[in-house]
């Protein structure tokens, strides 16, 4: 029983990280309608920058993570300007953009692999001390992951509710042609979305890297998690993305409890299949009429 509680606590911490990734991915998918496969490479840039700052330049870890997130955001901006925007101007089809995005992912992944090598890199953080909460033990790193992650999620949630900019960004996903008609800066919105998404992903990537390290080939399985979390919760709802991420992490914990840790990746795909078959609009999604699709 204690093991289950412990695994649920770990699952919640992971769930916050998955939710961050899902928000980064979902923000782009909801507004720019781009299936952002390059995200799988993009969110790894931040942890590597943090690694460079921390290990090569011996800066403290909070500074490393901050710089990492900033660098990730800049990378997201560059990807939008150099990659997606030309396609958008050309009115390229969704699949073409997706394939190009995949190409960008391959490029980023392999550039990282050439610079940093294929092996796992860990930041210099010393040995983590742990705290007991009744039957549950959490390391300081997990507590930091949870606090920073939920703070970012709450901030984003409030911003999405209250800030007018996000209304326009949501509208961008429904009718992109109408946005310039209303005198709103379409391209600037797209840049903001991609920058913000990369920053969120980069934050999640840094938090993951502080705990377990980072290697250039881990992006795709996290992208799978992010996209499935977004789909599970419902594409249109911010709370759905968070819920999907947490639910996915908890299910993974249950998998570890019942079977073995090596089958964790299978959970993602099973959930994907389950959602596609049972509830294609997601847990909180609203079913659309055919003509709205």
């Amino acid at each position: 029983m204690n093991l289950l509680l412990q695994l649920i606590a770990d699952g919640l911490v992971n769930g916050i990280l998955f939710a961050l990734l899902a928000c980064g991915f979902g923000l782009v998918y909801r507004s720019a309608r781009v299936f952002h496969l390059a995200f799988a490479g993009l969110f790894l840039i931040s942890p590597y920058v943090a690694y460079v700052v921390n290990v090569w330049l011996h800066a403290p870890i909070w500074l490393a993570v901050t710089l990492g997130v900033v660098a990730g955001a800049v990378a997201g901006y560059i990807v939008e300007v150099l990659l997606y925007h030309p396609f958008f101007r050309r009115k390229a089809s969704n699949s073409a953009v997706m394939v190009a995005s995949l190409g960008a992912f391959i490029v980023i992944e392999n550039v990282l692999a050439i610079i940093f090598g294929n092996e796992l890199r860990t930041v210099d953080r010393g040995l983590a001390s742990s705290f007991d909460f009744g039957p549950i033990t959490l390391t300081t790193i997990q507590i930091f992951q949870f606090l920073i992650g939920s703070a970012a999620l709450v901030a984003l949630g409030v911003a999405i509710r209250k800030v007018r900019l996000f209304k326009a960004i949501w509208a961008l996903g429904d009718e992109p042609e109408l946005v310039p008609v209303l005198g709103l800066p379409l391209t600037r919105y797209r840049k903001i979305v991609f920058t913000l998404s990369a920053a969120l992903g980069g934050l999640a990537g840094c938090l993951i890297a502080v705990d377990v390290g980072v290697d250039p080939h881990m992006g795709m399985s996290y992208l799978l998690i992010a996209a499935v979390a977004m789909l599970t919760g419902g594409i249109d709802r911010y709370t759905g993305w968070v819920l999907g991420g947490v639910a996915l992490a908890l299910l993974q914990s249950l998998m570890v409890w019942q079977f073995s840790a090596k089958w964790v990746d299978l959970v993602t795909f099973t959930v994907l299949i389950g959602v596609l078959v049972v509830r294609p609009q997601g847990i909180l999604g609203l079913r659309k009429r055919l003509e709205e699709q």
């Binding site: 050309r90 699949s95 073409a96 394939v99 190009a100 190409g103 490029v107 392999n110």
Partner: peptide, 28 residues
């Protein structure tokens, strides 16, 4: 890795300039 990078760039440029491929009839 360098080979993969070339594939990646090839995909991007192909999708931008010639989504039909070298001799295709259908573009995505």
């Amino acid at each position: 890795n360098l080979r993969e990078i070339i594939y990646g760039f090839a995909l991007i440029l192909l999708m931008y300039w010639r989504p039909r491929g070298l001799a295709g009839d259908f573009s995505l």
